[in-house]
Amino acid sequence: MTASPGAETLARLAALLDRQDILDALTRFSRGMDRFDRELFLSAFHSDATIAAGDFVGGPVELFDWSRAMHEAGQIATQHNLLNLTVDVDGDTAHTELYYLFAARNRDESNWIAGGRYLDRLTRRDGLWRIMLRTTVIEWSGMVPTMPIPFADVPGIHGNGKPSRSAEDPSYRRPLINLREPNIPA
């Protein structure tokens, strides 16, 4: 007979589920921005959230519109990479510190990177964790020498789909399947 989990184990499991739900919300922000997926992006925030990012201070709808216009004008691709995460949960409020690495391929073919931290206050409403306040701490920035994108000259390299800042990106395909022919390079 298997023993039931104790109160301490159940509390740890609840804390782990909260942490995962919080990480999922933070990830929706990044993926939504990089794929220009408005619905996904907005699902990371409560509608009455406030965000302070660069010279922008406002709500999530305005942030998406401002960010998309800025990224479309300046870059052909962006990646908001999420790194170290600390989470401090107190009831239905959580504070997080999330390190990020931003990388972009600019329209002039240069490459820009920046690093910093997202400081967030999230709240749980109706069982859902979402960002209520975000402030961005930018700690460094620089340009990376431009080099050819690896394998760009391989015939059929995009047979499984070309990268896209839309729902046309192969990451949205369900089920994900391989459309390329077998090939073992010599």
Rank of each mutant, 00 (worst) to 15 (best):
M1N: 11
T2K: 11
P5T: 01
P5V: 00
G6L: 05
E8K: 12
T9E: 09
L10K: 05
A11F: 03
R12A: 11
R12K: 10
L13F: 08
A14V: 08
L16Q: 11
D18F: 01
D18Q: 06
D21A: 15
L23Q: 06
D24R: 01
S30R: 06
R31T: 04
R31K: 07
G32Y: 02
M33V: 11
R35D: 02
R35H: 10
F36V: 02
A44M: 05
H46M: 07
D48Q: 08
I51M: 01
A52P: 07
A53W: 02
G59M: 03
P60I: 09
P60Q: 09
V61L: 08
L63R: 00
A73K: 15
A73G: 10
G74S: 14
T78D: 05
H80E: 08
T86A: 11
V87Q: 02
V89F: 03
D90F: 02
D90H: 08
A94G: 07
T96I: 07
E97S: 15
L98D: 05
Y99E: 13
Y100S: 08
L101M: 14
N106V: 03
R107C: 10
R107N: 13
D108T: 10
D108G: 08
D108P: 00
S110H: 08
S110F: 10
W112R: 11
W112Q: 10
A114E: 14
G116T: 06
R121E: 11
L122N: 00
R124K: 15
R125I: 06
D126M: 02
G127A: 01
T136F: 01
T136A: 14
S141N: 11
S141L: 07
T146A: 15
D153C: 09
V154W: 12
G159M: 09
G161M: 06
K162M: 13
S164R: 09
R165I: 03
A167R: 12
P170A: 04
Y172I: 06
R173L: 10
R173G: 05
R174E: 10
L176K: 12
I177N: 07
I177S: 12
L179V: 04
L179G: 03
E181C: 02
E181A: 15
